[in-house]
């Protein structure tokens, strides 16, 4: 009889245990709801494909067109006479296209020197997490060309079309360290076919540092600096530094900033920045970006 009681107890326990576990058990983990970590691209390191002036490690989504209008006003130190620079404005407008998640191209036209520019940006490596072969950084390569549109300075001599051209090549290595903080460095080479003075170098090498610190979900602090390592003229030129905020609304990103650079393409802001932050030769500027979806993503 004792044995019977024991069996009854075991039976009771087994039934109880079964029902109890059926109530609480995590069915999802049982069928493998938690998949193995898959390789996943780290997205949205920057709000836009440009930090401020410089290219960022971010790309446009495939099938999208980014219409950008960049404004730089006059120097703040001009005072009330020129309403702190707002009376004068220089602009660049551009159309950038997202071709693949790691490939984009764009064309732009600037007021400054009536310059046309075009570029292609490609990322062979993108920052990712999980899985094998994930990379801690994004590597992007940019190749661009600019064309000066000004009348020839000296029409009396033989002028070649190629004299109007300059090229730039850039590698950008960047990482989104956390949700709120991204940083990138960008070694850049600018080659100018024709320079103003005999002593000016054709090749200029610079190292850029750009970053973003998110202040809230929709507002971020950004900065963008280029240090010319080789080829900086002795006087009159400075390294371009821009500091600003990105404000994101529905379909727009507003980038408001202060910068000592007037030019808005790589040739112009790396080699021809004449403002000195120390003297207040700084300009207020903003970038307006409106993204259009040209090709709709397949939903079904």
């Amino acid at each position: 009889m004792k044995r019977f009681q024991l069996y009854a107890l075991i039976a009771a326990i087994s039934v109880f245990a079964n029902t109890a576990s059926a109530q609480d058990e995590d069915l999802l983990s049982m069928v493998g709801g938690d998949e193995k970590p898959q390789k996943e691209r780290v997205k949205y390191a920057f709000k836009s494909p440009r930090v401020i002036n410089s290219h960022s490690i971010e790309f446009l989504n495939p099938g999208t067109l980014d219409f950008r209008i960049l404004h730089r006003f006059g120097q703040l130190d001009q005072g009330y006479k020129n309403f702190f620079g707002l009376d004068q404005a220089s602009m660049r407008m551009s159309f950038d296209f997202g071709i693949m998640h790691n490939l984009m191209a764009g064309v732009g036209r600037s007021t400054f020197k009536k310059e046309l520019d075009a570029f292609v940006k490609y990322a062979p490596i993108r920052q990712s997490t999980g899985g094998k072969l994930s990379s801690p950084v994004t590597l992007a390569l940019v190749s661009g060309i600019t064309m000066d549109g000004m009348p020839w300075a000296d029409p009396s001599r033989t002028n070649y079309f190629t004299s109007r051209l300059a090229y730039y090549f850039q590698a950008i290595i960047g990482r989104k360290f956390s949700e709120g903080f991204s940083l990138q460095v960008s070694p850049t080479m600018v080659h100018r076919n024709l320079v103003q003075l005999e002593g000016d170098p054709n090749n200029i090498y610079a190292l850029g540092v750009g970053g973003r610190l998110k202040l809230s979900k929709r507002i971020a602090l950004t900065w963008d600096y280029n240090h010319v390592l080789v080829g900086m003229p002795d006087s009159g030129y400075y390294n371009p530094l821009s500091v600003g905020v990105d404000i994101e609304t529905g379909g727009h990103v507003f980038q408001l900033h202060f910068s000592n650079a007037t030019g808005m393409n790589e040739r112009a802001f790396i080699t021809e920045t004449t403002g000195n932050w120390g003297k207040g030769e700084v300009r207020f500027g903003f970038n307006l970006s409106r993204v259009f979806q040209l090709k709709k993503k397949k939903k079904d």
Binding site: P62, G63, T64, R218, G251, K299
Partner: peptide, 12 residues
């Protein structure tokens, strides 16, 4: 359908 919406959905 729109990539930007997807970004805002995930980010914001």
């Amino acid at each position: 359908e729109r990539a930007l919406m997807e970004e805002h959905f995930n980010e914001n």
